[in-house]
Amino acid sequence: MSRFMALVGRDLRLAWRRPGDAAVVLAFFVLAASLFPLGVGPALETLARIAPGVLWVAALFAAMLSLDRLFADDFADGTLEQLALAPLPLELTALAKCLAHWIVTGLPLAVLSPALGLLFGLDAASIATLTASLLLGAPSLSLLGGLGAALTLGARRGGALLSLLVLPLAVPVLIFGVGAVEALKGGDGVLAHFALLGAFLAGTLAITPWAMAAALRQAVE
């Protein structure tokens, strides 16, 4: 566990040395969400209706901005080969890097979502549900993105391939995340949607580290 947390800390320190990368992700999220009120008009009823879908899609695309570098820098300088030979299993290495990615991108996006929810005219209960759904769903996006980054590592135009791989896989997360807010507005319970988000996270957590490790081993051989 100490090696795992040390690797997470290493990636967080590297991200701290490049604050511009995280700033670009957050700026994209804010700008992408802020442009929709300009396009659809100032009617709060319309904005509140589209807010969950807009914010979830903006969060997905914002999180994907930094995914192509998740393993690429370590692959380019030979660090990935050393990590593959380290005592820490490569599955846990991949999981640690995805955890660091979530801390740097997914967590700040969820923290920013209440302010953008107010921009769209959401009430307090809807904002709380949206934030909770992002907190529960964003780790799945990081894990799926890590799988896409590992599969496209070293490929030409890897960023485009990564998007093609990750976007279809992320559709269930978007559906359950948006559905939680819509269920609250309709007077239905949101626990079912949170349970589905949790089940999807558990499934990705059980599968993606092994798939990422296999793809990374193939890349360094």
Rank of each mutant, 00 (worst) to 15 (best):
M1N: 11
M1G: 12
S2Y: 08
S2H: 10
S2G: 01
R3E: 15
M5R: 14
A6C: 07
A6M: 12
V8G: 04
R13S: 14
A15C: 06
P19L: 03
A22C: 09
V24K: 08
V24E: 13
V25L: 04
L26Y: 01
F29D: 08
L38R: 13
V40H: 09
V40R: 02
G41I: 04
A43I: 05
E45M: 03
T46C: 00
L47R: 09
A48C: 11
R49V: 12
G53I: 12
L55N: 03
A62M: 05
L67I: 12
L67Y: 00
L67R: 08
D68Q: 14
R69T: 13
D73K: 13
D74I: 03
F75E: 01
A76E: 15
D77N: 09
D77P: 01
E81F: 01
E81S: 10
Q82M: 14
Q82N: 09
L85P: 01
A86L: 02
A86H: 07
A86K: 04
P87K: 06
L90I: 07
L90K: 05
T93S: 14
A94D: 01
A96L: 10
A96V: 11
A100I: 08
A100P: 08
H101W: 03
H101Y: 07
T105V: 15
T105H: 12
L109N: 08
A110W: 00
A110K: 01
L112P: 11
A115F: 15
L116T: 05
F120C: 03
A125E: 14
S126M: 05
S126W: 06
I127V: 15
T129H: 03
T129L: 04
L130C: 09
L134M: 15
G137P: 07
A138Q: 14
P139Q: 02
P139F: 03
S142Q: 02
L144Q: 01
L151R: 05
L151W: 03
T152Y: 05
T152H: 03
L153C: 01
L153T: 01
R157V: 10
R157P: 00
G158A: 14
G159H: 06
A160W: 13
L164C: 11
P168H: 10
L169A: 15
L174W: 04
I175G: 01
I175H: 11
I175L: 15
G177V: 05
V178P: 13
V178M: 13
A180N: 07
A183E: 12
L184T: 02
G186P: 13
G187W: 07
G189Q: 08
A192K: 07
F194I: 11
A195I: 06
L196I: 08
L197E: 10
A202D: 11
L205P: 02
A206N: 10
I207R: 00
T208A: 14
P209N: 06
